[in-house]
Design a protein around this nucleic acid. Structure first.
Lengths: 332, 332
DNA sequence: CGCAGCTTTGCAACCGGTTGCAAAACGGTT
DNA sequence: AACCGTTTTGCAACCGGTTGCAAAGCTGCG
């Protein structure tokens, strides 16, 4: 079938070990045999079989990329950056779509069967325990976009969602809003929980501001639109902190449909700063999440763990900042 | 390290072959030994190593998923469907991001090193030759969203872009537009070429309609917006067929910014029918591309090729249809 | 009980590489 | 030329499975 070590060895008139050595760096081969082998190899079009190599070295260069966020446009950028970053380092992403499951067992087993060198869990909604299941199975893991914890147990890279909530609150207060609300994603999502916590905690420091909260079943346009339509028919707040840009855009749409103006009648601030947020017909004020830094750091960490499996777990959090566009009124 | 065949065999008091056989279906083992083996296996938490198995069977169950469309939101849905579909069949997607490259050689080599069982090229812009490189390397391949050709040489699944162009033309003509234009994506993209061809061919049948064309460097919002802004400052057409929904939305934004109305002053029809197109604040009239059917058929074909590597290449094209929303005027 | 015919089992070779170890080759000294 | 210290090389075992083949075990029948 395909050309193997033996074929090359035969043609070059050397032993299989010699061939193997010219293809593994750090091995000692004389320039003479190396030349012979390389000649034979290119003549035959030989490429070492990664799987066979993996069997003896124990390194596959496969990285499990596990996510359950296949519906949020921001994750297209996330996948883009992860795949490119991994490829640049000679690592191969084995993609796992977790859309329905929440039980890590199945993924752990599967990724172990393929002997992945490491796993990146890219999800803003999975609990910390998910990543821990990989660690417990002895697989290096980093939880990207995960929840910050003081003693994480696994590497976590992302943003401080509590702090983001606070930031949103401070922004709304600074703009003079005094009846505000939080519109979150799924109540089970760690990101939503933390954003709510920070938002409410910060507002509590500003006595006169009243706040309400609601949670949607998904970070989706339709959920945001529906909820905002409902709220408008009641007694809406002056400004909303939406747990995600897509939700915000849904809400924005509902406000416009109702014939009201943004930011005149209702203020909106989102989170993520996805590409769409800067489209002129959306022009969403939002909190920027530094995707590039997060993905880069995640890859770095997983790579470091390949060297030192017992690297002490750390949390790397990146700062966010408000991007002021057209859906909140100016400083008062 | 991990528990192997031998460990289980030892504990169950049988030979390694016996253990192997209980884990490969279609092999003959007596109920008695099967029971013993299974007991030992679960006690030790044994899982067969997929890579080792792959070495002897020649089947890895890995499928290369190659794409260069990491910036078009429609592809998030594409990846979602591909990964789930593959997983359901016990296949594992090895994701390859081709963003910069156009040369297949590198990907072919890499995927061959990992002994993938097959490859799905998911791209609307790559030429047919790209997929052929895999076929020539002896790897089963299907080009998803690829160009239809009468003698494809490889499996192609997608839509008939020429026909879509015609459909757009017929639609615009039926609505009474007589100065229309095509706004395409990259001129090198096969999808854009074919859509333009069909569009122009159909219009040629309707003498009195005039048409202009322009091409953007990417299927992106910014490109659509910039181009439409430029066109508006000149002598714009009455209606535009945009080669992609994202382009349309960019164009839409430019029209709105210019203080003009859609469809009053300018008509727009896109292609893809991505989720965003039905958002109320966009509400784009567009041609629906049946993603679900395309991905499903692609997976089916690649799976069939695993059985019969020399399966005669076929092109499977799915019909598209116009989804009438708010960016074209009604039937005249 | 002996034997035919079928099923189950274990042996051993193989998949395509890597690597520890000892022997061979090399280069430089005296 | 003999000797010594380094490289370089090939042998053989191993990674964790699968599988062809022949021997062993079982069942039923005369």
């Amino acid at each position: 079938m395909s050309v193997t070590l033996k074929d090359v060895a035969l043609r070059a008139g050397v032993s299989r070990s010699a061939v193997s050595r010219t293809f593994t760096d750090g091995a000692s081969v004389s320039p003479k045999t190396r030349a012979k082998v390389e000649a034979a190899a290119t003549a035959l079009g030989y490429r070492p079989n990664a799987l066979a190599r993996a069997m003896t070295t124990g390194r596959t260069k496969l990285i499990g990329l596990v996510s359950n966020n296949f519906h949020n446009p921001i994750f297209l950028e996330v996948f883009d950056r992860f795949t490119r970053g991994l490829q640049e380092r000679g690592l191969r992403p084995l993609l796992v779509n977790l859309s329905d499951e929440t039980d890590p067992e199945h993924s752990v087993r599967m990724l172990r069967q393929y002997s992945v060198d490491g796993v990146i869990v890219a999800s803003s909604t999975l609990p910390l325990s998910f990543a821990k299941a990989f660690r417990d199975a002895g697989i290096p893991v980093v939880h990207s976009f995960g929840r910050h914890a003081s003693a994480p147990g696994v590497h976590v890279v992302g943003i401080d969602n509590v702090e983001c909530g606070r930031m949103a609150a401070r922004t709304l207060v600074a703009r003079g809003y005094d009846r505000v609300a939080f519109m979150g994603g799924p109540e089970a999502a760690t990101s939503t929980q933390d954003r709510a916590t920070g938002f409410l905690a910060e507002l509590a420091l500003h006595g006169r501001v009243t706040v309400t909260t609601s949670y949607e079943d998904a970070y989706s346009f339709e959920a945001g639109r529906r909820e905002m339509a409902r709220l408008l028919s009641l007694n809406p707040a002056q400004a909303y902190f939406c747990g995600d840009d897509v939700l915000s855009i849904g809400a924005l749409s509902a406000v416009q449909t109702a014939g009201l103006s943004v930011p005149g009648d209702v203020g909106l601030i989102g989170l993520n700063d996805m590409e769409m947020a800067r489209w002129q017909n959306i022009n969403l004020t939002t909190i920027h999440q530094p995707i590039a830094q997060i993905t880069r750091a995640s890859i770095e960490l997983v790579e470091e763990m390949l060297e030192d499996r017992d690297r002490y777990p750390e949390a790397r959090l990146f700062a966010c900042h408000v991007v002021d566009r057209g859906t909140l009124r100016g400083l008062s």
